[in-house]
Write a protein that binds this DNA or RNA. Structure first.
Lengths: 337, 337
DNA sequence: TTGAAAGCGCTAACAG
DNA sequence: CTGTTAGCGCTTTCAA
């Protein structure tokens, strides 16, 4: 592997000038040309490790997805994070930073030491964290105290004083609530995600807010775990009593399960009951009827998280609190007046 | 940030002994205890950058997903890679190596220089590559010549002389072919992925091999692009002529589209026509009927790719050529004799 | 405009 | 068993 020394030698200058020449420093034009030529000739690629050591900056950020062993399926069964990662890479590539990726469980032993190690290792300039649950985010304190750049994907309600991007679950839930009300629904139910899941909590809050403001009633509520199976069971449970006019499923997978159960008992959507999902995940158009849902714009979220983090790293921002507004995606499973 | 020097100073030894003490070198037990205590007291975390510089090893590997602008949806619309990444992280975590993540398109300008830069940067010890298409894998030569550890997820047929893990598409296709034949199908069709997609090619080859060996005929073939929509259109095209007994869709998304079209024309699966998908992706159980499909064990693939790569990195393997055998997942969309 | 030298944090070779 | 020294590759004062 050729080093800067080799380049300098070939160009007949010191490593100092070689470095200057390559990095746009103040050197004679002719010298710069010679150095560049030498670099080209030798296929010189700067050893980033050396650079990091001197510069103290790795140009690497890490995405940490938090999971809980209690709800293993929440994260896995979705390609949403892939979109988020693509959004991240879009801006990261442009800014010439690399992306590391980790999945950590709250239950991992030695989990809290992960962050101190990460900070101390100097291999990463900052982290994007997807906490998901209303856990005690002990690690945030570690990050804050170390002044280590970080940003969370988390509703503002749970993020006082933390750098965060909010995916607008409250508004998303509200959009669905309004849609149902406008469609004439009066007896309304929800199949929500885990009670400790931050997004689930906010979706429900937005949803019920819309209902109550319009004078509609919530008549059924079940907590699933974001899986197809739990949607099926949730629907079964709700259907054991008088069927509501409309059901909001807090993600599309549960909506898929709910639709399956409804079909099994001969209830049609949206004719007999309106259904809406959430996430606009890939299954939404695979279902029958195609699912009305909410797009939380994961690609944009990834991009926003990354620009936010980078701006903290380079010092151009002190703190970040942004929300990306979700969009209603109207398809076939809801009712219009 | 506290460094080894600080620890050494507090323990009253040289940095050399401190290093030895911390890394299990030959030091007096009492000394080791003192050093460890000092380290604990100061919350010492080794600066990995310094370590890498001296050791020449970053304990970081990178996953590179290759995409093509011609088929943007192939990769995105699936959570399969998430499973693969979890498989990777499983073994990577255990071996204390970090994972970087990149998505590159064949069409990216400056793409080929990406690998030389990656190698020269010294930030990564090796790469796992998912090539997907039958492109000229120019970059492999770069890796080989630089003797840079690498491994591909690619069918053996396309991987002569390359380190690779084969996901067994041929066998998977064959399993579906056998299943159809056993189910009594005689006029059989396929909705395949892009003609240049390595997995698609192999799935079809395995599938038709099974048919021909059993004396069954392939009577229809369409190439989609692995999206739901293309499955719908593919089925439409096939149904414009006499309907086959059975259709193999080369992934579950296209199967979803095919099922939707069949329903729209009142053809029932599996009663009127048998359907099988591929991938055992999350939508498989959301469909009606639940989809018979093939599980390519992405989690295991991720794990195998990682152990393979790490064994090349640490020199315990010269080359890797493994295949992970896929498994048929019988659900409701096929027919039994 | 250029070069010599220091230093980022760590490990390894060698000497004691 | 321990300390001294060198060096990984780079950037950056500081002098010249």
């Amino acid at each position: 592997m050729t080093t800067l020394k080799d380049v300098a030698a070939l160009a007949g200058v010191s490593t100092a000038t070689a470095s200057l020449a390559l990095n746009g420093g103040p050197v004679n034009a002719r010298t710069r040309e010679q150095v560049k030529k030498a670099a080209r000739q030798l296929n010189y690629v700067p050893n980033r490790v050396g650079q990091i050591l001197t510069l103290g900056r790795s140009n690497t950020i890490e995405l940490i997805i938090m999971t809980s062993e209690k709800y293993p399926d929440v994260v896995r069964k979705t390609s949403l994070y892939y979109y988020l990662m693509e959004g991240m890479l879009g801006v990261a590539d442009q800014r010439n930073v690399s992306v590391r990726f980790a999945v950590k469980s709250y239950e991992d032993r030695g989990f809290s030491s992960y962050f101190s190690k990460l900070i101390g290792s100097r291999m990463v300039d900052g982290v994007i964290i997807l906490p998901q649950f209303t856990h005690d985010h002990h690690f945030v304190r570690i990050l804050q105290e170390a002044k280590f750049p970080h940003i969370l994907l988390q509703p503002s309600v749970f993020s006082a004083q933390m750098n965060h991007v909010d995916m607008g679950n409250f508004e998303g839930g509200r959009l669905v609530g309004d849609l149902f009300v406008k469609g004439g629904a009066e007896r309304i139910g929800i199949i929500n995600g885990p009670a400790a899941h931050v997004d689930a909590i906010e979706r429900e809050r937005g949803f019920t807010t819309a209902l109550f403001e319009a004078g509609a009633a919530l008549v059924a509520k079940v907590n699933g775990d974001f899986t197809i199976e739990s949607g099926y069971q949730g629907m079964q449970q709700i259907a054991s009593r008088k069927l509501p006019d409309a059901i909001f499923c807090a993600n599309d997978y549960m909506a898929a399960g709910a639709l399956r159960y409804l079909r099994s008992i001969g209830v049609r959507a949206p004719e007999d009951i309106a259904i809406a999902g959430y996430d606009n995940s890939d299954i939404a158009t695979a279902l029958d009827p195609e699912l009305t849902t909410v797009d939380n714009r994961f690609f944009d979220l990834g991009a926003e998280l990354t620009t936010g983090l980078l701006s903290i790293i380079d010092g151009s921002s002190e703190s970040i609190a942004v929300t990306i507004r979700p969009q209603l995606v109207l398809r076939k499973s809801h009712r219009t007046p």
